[in-house]
Simulated assay, not measured.
Amino acid sequence: MDGWFKLHRKITESPVFTDPELLRLWLLCLAKATYKETSVVIDRQQVTLLPGEFITGRKSLTNDYNVGLKPRHKKKELSLWRDLKFLEECGNLNIKSTNKYSVISIVKWSEYQESEQQLNNNRTTDEQQLNTNKKLKNLENLNNISTTTDDDREITLGDTYTKVCGTFVMPETFRQFFTTVRSQGYTEVFCIELLLEASESSTAGKPSVRYLQTIFDRWHKEGIYSRVQSKERKDSERGIKPSADKPDRLAFIDNL
């Protein structure tokens, strides 16, 4: 098990902190979660895990939890699974179960893992700055797409997809996803913002439909319509005040 995760002092205000068994289980979940998008094979079926997710089952979770504990402190499968469900009720995680396994998703995973990739890859300051510059350069190239073409057509979702993913043809899975988003009353500008948000935050490069869905669910729930609003919401949750003299260099679309 590689890497690290961080905890905020506010965990002491959580009901989980007052229960040693719940706290052990919560820390185990954080330790088992993947820090980057990855794929695993279960029963010859490929399962994609997003950052903050891990696959488990009642037996495997119980075995992991009981490692190193004295017999009187070990927990049974049913009791431990009830504790896991309680963590879900508290809003710490989400559980998606199948008849073979369960996918556990840590809520607000980025707050626990914001800088993992940088430390895991032992990047130097210069390397970090170089990667940041490359990212900004790519987005500036996206900004250079003419807002109109010879037939006065505005920037499209297809233009954005080509720049972000490097291919001209958008897969059917992406088309179906954005069609569903539009059917819920969202505009193409919103879809473009959503795609850019996913491409900027994905550690796997090209974002997956599943990752887009995760971001859309959060935006839809919190009433977010752009990357600017998303950043402001994250900064607000972290207690960071907005800076009036520091404009968003990554935004190329006017505020909605």
Rank of each mutant, 00 (worst) to 15 (best):
N138W: 06
L139A: 08
E111S: 06
Q129P: 00
M170I: 06
D150I: 10
L139E: 14
K76W: 04
N122T: 11
D126A: 14
Q129T: 07
K74C: 13
R175H: 08
K74Y: 03
K108W: 07
L87H: 01
D159T: 03
Y112F: 15
L84A: 04
T148P: 01
S97R: 15
Y161E: 01
L139C: 01
T147A: 06
L87R: 04
T98R: 04
K76H: 12
Q128Y: 08
E89I: 01
F86W: 12
Q128I: 15
M170D: 01
L78N: 03
K137P: 00
C90M: 14
E172N: 09
E154M: 06
L139H: 13
T162F: 08
N121E: 15
L84P: 02
R175L: 15
L157Q: 04
R72L: 13
S102E: 02
L80V: 02
I145F: 07
E111M: 09
E77Q: 09
N143V: 00
L84T: 03
S97I: 02
M170Y: 01
K108S: 11
T173S: 15
T124S: 15
W109I: 02
G91Q: 12
D126V: 09
I155K: 12
L93Y: 07
K163A: 04
N99R: 15
L78Y: 02
